[in-house]
Design a protein around this nucleic acid. Structure first.
Length: 188
DNA sequence: TATGAGATCAACT
DNA sequence: GTTGATCTCATAC
């Protein structure tokens, strides 16, 4: 299965984000199929990079194909893939996976019996995979990360993003239609 | 099913 | 001091 290289990410976030639906994300032998993402661009008021570079979001201002991890609400870690080019400060937030690999490990980390609650949300997914700020700035096309291109057709839906107050109406959330592992269902 | 509180931290006013 | 790209558990309907 072809592994996605950095060139895959050096395009508009709005092209990359929907194409990530159906791709497989693995981290140290745990992970699954990406079923939900959101796109953020530095011209977007909801993006962390909107107000300029800070120590926290510095990775977003670097080259594409790297991971940006930040702490959310003081509790969770959230995982992003940097896109476009150095300085464009755009990224895709990974919001949900359909678990396929290392499910037992993920159950142990999450202390939950329901597979639907393993990776169905940005904070849940990082806890299940064991991702923290220690991974901030790592490359996506080298261990411990592995991102595999999707194979076959996937029915991708778009809708408003979740949990934001600025630019909340922009339809930059993408998801795999009728997946049971979405953090929230898409409106029909 | 739906709303509300608590946990806890970095950026920003 | 307030807010946020969140999740869980408790309580209410």
């Amino acid at each position: 299965m072809p592994r996605l290289r950095k060139s895959f990410f050096s395009r508009s976030v709005h092209e990359v984000a929907p194409e990530l639906i159906g791709a497989t994300l693995l981290f140290r032998g745990a992970g699954g199929i990406i079923v939900e993402v959101e796109a953020y661009h530095h011209t977007d008021p909801a993006a962390h990079s909107y107000g300029g570079q800070t120590p926290r979001n510095a990775v977003m201002f670097g080259p594409p194909g790297y991971v940006y991890v930040y702490r959310s609400y003081g509790i969770h870690w959230c995982l992003n893939f940097v896109c476009e080019q150095a300085g464009s400060a755009s990224a895709v937030l990974i919001r949900a996976l359909a678990p396929t690999e290392g499910i037992a490990t993920m159950h142990r980390r999450r202390r939950r019996a329901d597979v639907r609650l393993l990776c169905s949300g940005p904070g849940r997914l990082t806890e299940a995979l064991g991702i923290t700020h220690a991974q901030n700035g790592l490359a996506l096309d080298a261990p411990p990360f592995e991102v595999q291109a999707r194979k076959g057709e996937f029915d991708v839906m778009a809708g408003p993003r979740i949990g934001i107050t600025k630019a909340a109406e922009l339809p930059w959330r993408y998801g795999l239609k009728s997946s049971r592992y979405l953090s929230k269902p898409f409106k029909v």
